[in-house]
């Protein structure tokens, strides 16, 4: 699956107005979304250190070793485990205390209220393009020990953060106005279960101190290499960009800022 996307910025003062404009444009009410993002980093392949380092006197071996090293090191990408909070009736209570006691007393309802999925995003395709294109994959995770699964897969937990925002849908396009909140860092095992912060989302520190929001307009396409689909998705996004020109400026994202690769270490 490929994702075609355009990105923009919404300042805090403009946030309400933008939401209203988008609601009018898409003829729907915003869908409030809360997501927990757990970041996983691939481990370095074992035995990499045993390879002779560059700059030795074995000039003949040098090239092969270098090649092998790049092969082992390249193509390592961060993965994310995204937990979307599914609003439940019990959570939506007027009294905050009730919801909190719900979270503390029995651990069961809260875990079931989070819909987990394993998310992989490639680095956007190079070249000057009208919209950012990249390969994405999202696998729903229903049951099991996710951290152990990823550990066996060669991924280790790094950190977590939260994304809150509003979603809009217009034909094939999803519009997501969101901001990133920092979460208290806990060990991997607890990161999945710990959802106590959900009741006090407003107190969490923001990543962007100005309180601004990001807006992402994206279209998921089954096969991004198909020229017809690519053309259609691009056209739709550009039409959206043109329609929202007065409200918010949408541009392709900076490729290096969207890079998901683990930096090369030698």
């Amino acid at each position: 699956m490929h994702e075609f996307a355009l990105y923009g910025l919404v300042s805090r003062d403009d946030h309400d107005r933008t939401l209203q404009q988008l609601a009018g444009y898409t003829r729907m009410q915003p869908q409030e979304t809360t997501e927990i993002h757990l970041v996983f980093k691939p481990r370095k392949p074992l035995g990499l250190d045993h390879l002779p380092s560059a700059g030795g006197s074995q000039g003949v071996m040098q090239q092969d070793v270098q090649k092998l090293k790049t092969m082992l090191n390249a193509g390592l990408y961060y993965m994310q485990l995204i937990g979307e909070i599914v609003p439940q009736k019990s959570l939506v209570t007027e009294n905050g205390d009730v919801a909190m006691s719900n979270g503390n007393d029995d651990g069961k309802p809260d875990t079931s209220a989070v819909r987990w999925s394993l998310d992989f995003k490639d680095t956007p395709e190079p070249g000057k393009q009208a919209v950012s294109t990249r390969l994405v994959s999202r696998i729903p995770m229903n049951d099991g020990n996710f951290v152990k699964f990823l550990d066996n897969f060669g991924y280790e937990y790094v950190s977590r953060y939260m994304v809150v925002g509003s979603r809009f849908y217009d034909h094939d396009t999803s519009l997501f106005v969101h901001k990133v909140l920092r979460l208290p860092q806990v060990p991997a095992d607890e990161a999945l279960r710990d959802t106590s912060f959900l009741t006090k989302t407003s107190e969490l520190p923001e990543q962007d101190g100005s309180g601004g929001y990001l807006i992402q307009a994206s279209i998921d396409v089954v096969d991004g290499n198909n020229p017809d689909l690519k053309d259609r998705a691009t056209r739709q996004l550009l039409a959206l960009k043109e329609a929202l020109r007065q409200a918010v400026e949408l541009t392709p994202g900076d490729r290096l800022a969207l890079d998901t690769r683990v930096p090369l270490t030698s």
Partner: peptide
């Protein structure tokens, strides 16, 4: 229709 439209659209196909 409104409910369906307010959900994430499936990926675009031919």
């Amino acid at each position: 229709n409104l409910i369906r439209r307010s959900q994430k659209p499936p990926p675009m196909t031919l």
